[in-house]
């Protein structure tokens, strides 16, 4: 097997193992209801993590996405309350805004040769602040179209609900897989992650690619915000604090190298689902504190970082031989 696939294989193995353990203790966890909820509850996280995967593959990081999701929810809620525009129009507007926001950060990162960490940290405060400027309260969304979206689901055998937002998430992952692994843009992303100087020598248009990467992340954050607003039927400026870190954790648990250049979008989906599974287990158990989720995710993260380090050593040793 190609050593590049080891982290992905490890991710999938851990996910399956975790599920087997869960099912042994709570057989009901094998039901389609749990599967449906897993997809629905983690839809917004899965979508934003796809964008994060592309950013991390390029060797960057995007800390702004949690705030952008919150901004999106508030933006939608306030627009629907005050303007009377159709939600689809609002969605389109929002996606343009968040993509442009991401593109602007990408441009700054490239043009000023600034670390993505600092630029997107500024973006994080800006987006959060912008959300507060629109409102400081939780704004409920009350629109017939939203009820429609909320009720759209496919009833799987076993009464599990495959919701619209769950499907949107799966489709996003699919699109992300194609973009990252099957397009020239994706190849440029991997090239940047492998080394900017080399990428430039090989003819990557570094500036254009960087802008596109962060615009894509912004687009995903906007889409995630839409999904989150459908999920919660409201917009709240204090929502999704720290989601960017959860997304980064999902990406790394999904087997993507935090330093860039290696990884899989599909792995990120598994990473998100693994984290969701731990949460579900704690709900089933009922006695465990929900903080155990954080502890287990922390341990998993650590394990994956060690795995990647070990793998790196193995492959470099082989290349040297």
């Amino acid at each position: 097997m190609n050593p590049r696939l080891y982290p992905l294989a490890a991710t999938i193995a851990i996910f399956l193992l975790a599920w087997v353990i869960c099912v042994m203790q709570f057989p009901y966890m094998l039901s389609t209801r749990v599967v449906g909820n897993l997809l629905t509850d983690n839809a917004y996280l899965g979508i934003v993590a796809v964008g994060m995967t592309v950013v991390i593959l390029s060797g960057g990081i995007d800390l702004s996405v949690g705030s952008v999701i919150a901004f999106s929810g508030v933006f939608i809620a306030v627009m629907l309350r005050d303007s009377g525009l159709h939600p689809l129009v609002v969605f389109a507007l929002l996606l343009v805004v968040t993509s442009a926001f991401g593109a602007a950060m990408g441009w700054l990162i490239h043009a000023l040769a600034m670390p993505p960490f600092i630029v997107t940290l500024a973006g994080m405060f800006l987006a959060r602040g912008a959300a507060y400027m629109l409102t400081i309260d939780s704004v409920p969304i009350d629109h017939a179209f939203y009820d429609l979206l909320d009720d759209a689901y496919y009833l799987m055998p076993g009464k599990g609900r495959l919701t619209l937002i769950g499907v949107v998430m799966l489709l996003t992952v699919l699109v992300g897989m194609i973009v990252a692994h099957r397009t020239r843009f994706g190849a440029s992303v991997f090239a940047l992650g492998g080394g900017e100087a080399t990428a430039r020598l090989m003819g990557v248009k570094v500036g254009r690619t960087t802008v596109a990467i962060y615009a894509f992340s912004g687009l995903m954050a906007g889409l995630s915000g839409i999904v989150f607003s459908i999920y919660t039927s409201s917009g709240y400026p204090l929502a999704t604090v720290g989601t960017e870190l959860t997304a980064i954790a999902a990406v790394v648990i999904g087997g993507t190298l935090l330093t860039g250049g290696a990884g899989f979008v599909f792995g990120t989906l598994i990473g998100v689902l693994t984290m969701g599974l731990i949460q579900t287990y704690i709900v089933f158990d009922g006695t465990l504190s929900s903080w155990w989720t954080k502890i287990i995710i922390g341990l998993l993260l650590l394990a994956f970082i060690l795995l990647q380090k070990g793998l790196l050593r193995v492959t470099t040793a082989r290349a040297g031989a």
């Binding site: 590049r4 194609i178 099957r182 397009t183 020239r184 190849a187 991997f190 090239a191 992650g193 492998g194 080394g195 100087a197 080399t198 990428a199 020598l201 090989m202 003819g203 990557v204 250049g261 290696a262 290349a319």
Partner: peptide, 24 residues
Amino acid sequence: VNLLPNLTVAQNLTFGQEPTRFGM
């Protein structure tokens, strides 16, 4: 610094000139 070790040989060789079908 010449090529990218994290890509396949084929990807390295055809980088920037990849044959595409329907954008893929």
